Computed example of a mutant assay.
Amino acid sequence: MAKANINKLAMSLYMVVIVSFLLTSTIAESRSTPSIGFAVAKAAPSCDTVFGVRSGDTCFGIVQTFKLTTEFFDSINPNLNCTALFSGQWVCVDGTAN
């Protein structure tokens, strides 16, 4: 009878080790980076005026046309890919960069 209890204990310990390994590897695979302190989320930019891109337009040309700085234009269009502009795409040309 004692041998059966030892086997049950060993099986229980193996299960704990396996579950611990799976939990640890799952956490490690999430690749989250711990941060120190509190992170303050930036507010999304606010757009007041948009411009419809036409054939041949470039970000640089739009910046010059609307007398903007490149930094401001980029800040109000944070997800804009200037190398892939297409006709009919809307870009922000006036607003608030937060």
Results as ranks from 00 to 15, higher is better:
residue 85 L to N: 11
residue 1 M to K: 12
residue 9 L to H: 02
residue 19 V to R: 01
residue 30 S to R: 15
residue 18 I to S: 02
residue 21 F to T: 13
residue 95 G to C: 05
residue 38 F to A: 08
residue 41 A to Q: 10
residue 5 N to W: 05
residue 26 T to C: 06
residue 46 S to K: 09
residue 46 S to P: 00
residue 18 I to G: 02
residue 4 A to V: 13
residue 18 I to V: 12
residue 34 P to A: 11
residue 20 S to W: 06
residue 32 S to K: 11
residue 2 A to Y: 07
residue 67 K to S: 15
residue 19 V to Q: 02
residue 60 F to N: 13
residue 68 L to A: 04
residue 4 A to Q: 14
residue 56 G to A: 10
residue 82 C to L: 11
residue 21 F to Q: 05
residue 27 I to L: 15
residue 39 A to Q: 12
residue 17 V to A: 14
residue 34 P to H: 07
residue 4 A to F: 09
residue 69 T to G: 14
residue 33 T to H: 07
residue 15 M to S: 10
residue 41 A to T: 08
residue 22 L to H: 02
residue 17 V to F: 06
residue 25 S to F: 03
residue 46 S to V: 13
residue 53 V to P: 11
residue 61 G to P: 02
residue 85 L to D: 12
residue 68 L to H: 04
residue 64 Q to S: 15
residue 63 V to H: 03
residue 89 Q to T: 08
residue 38 F to L: 11
residue 53 V to C: 08
residue 88 G to W: 10
residue 53 V to M: 06
residue 32 S to N: 12
residue 74 D to Q: 14
residue 5 N to C: 05
residue 58 T to M: 09
residue 24 T to F: 11
residue 30 S to M: 15
residue 22 L to I: 14
residue 65 T to F: 03
residue 52 G to Q: 13
residue 82 C to H: 09
residue 68 L to T: 06
residue 50 V to A: 07
residue 3 K to M: 13
residue 92 C to I: 06
residue 4 A to R: 13
residue 75 S to M: 05
residue 39 A to I: 11
residue 46 S to Y: 02
residue 46 S to M: 06
residue 17 V to L: 15
residue 87 S to H: 03
residue 98 N to V: 01
residue 51 F to Q: 07
residue 25 S to R: 06
residue 3 K to Y: 10
residue 82 C to N: 13
residue 72 F to P: 08
residue 17 V to S: 09
residue 45 P to W: 01
residue 74 D to N: 15
residue 33 T to D: 07
residue 66 F to N: 07
residue 79 N to K: 07
residue 68 L to D: 08
residue 63 V to P: 08
residue 47 C to L: 04
residue 1 M to C: 08
residue 39 A to H: 07
residue 40 V to T: 12
residue 19 V to E: 03
residue 23 L to S: 15
residue 50 V to H: 02
residue 71 E to A: 09
residue 97 A to C: 05
residue 36 I to P: 00
residue 28 A to E: 12
residue 28 A to M: 11
residue 82 C to R: 11
residue 29 E to P: 00
residue 6 I to W: 04
residue 24 T to H: 09
residue 66 F to I: 05
residue 73 F to C: 09
residue 43 A to P: 03
residue 35 S to F: 05
residue 91 V to D: 08
residue 23 L to C: 14
residue 69 T to Q: 04
residue 13 L to Y: 02
residue 10 A to M: 10
residue 59 C to N: 08
residue 2 A to R: 15
residue 81 N to C: 02
residue 37 G to Q: 03
residue 28 A to K: 10
residue 83 T to M: 10
residue 54 R to S: 14
residue 81 N to F: 04
residue 30 S to V: 09
residue 57 D to W: 03
residue 52 G to W: 00
residue 29 E to R: 07
residue 59 C to P: 05
residue 75 S to R: 10
residue 49 T to L: 11
residue 69 T to C: 04
residue 92 C to T: 08
residue 52 G to S: 15
residue 75 S to N: 13
residue 98 N to P: 00
residue 24 T to D: 03
residue 82 C to T: 14
residue 43 A to I: 01
residue 40 V to H: 01
residue 56 G to Y: 04
residue 24 T to C: 12
